[in-house]
């Protein structure tokens, strides 16, 4: 990426299988446009989400973390 290009962040999105993952699916089916910066990680439930995941994501170099239930 050149210096002048606009910064395009990488965001790890932890989505609950039953809520936000479904919403993402519906958004796709409904052809709603959203930024391509999120990288979706499906988790079985937000209760599965552990602080370790968030820190591990930051360690791997993401610019932001989004957890959605």
């Amino acid at each position: 990426m050149s210096e002048n290009a606009e910064f395009s962040p990488r965001i790890a999105a932890f989505l609950c299988n039953w809520c936000s993952y479904g919403a993402a699916d519906l958004a796709g089916v409904s052809r709603l446009q959203y930024p391509p910066n999120i990288q979706v990680i499906r988790i079985p439930c937000t209760g599965r989400m552990s602080p370790k995941f968030i820190l591990a994501a930051f360690r791997k170099g993401v610019d932001g973390v989004w957890v959605s239930g």
Binding site: W18, S20, W66, V67, S68
Partner: peptide, 9 residues
Amino acid sequence: RLHFSWISS
């Protein structure tokens, strides 16, 4: 940097 949200399917 850290966001939480609550979105139904």
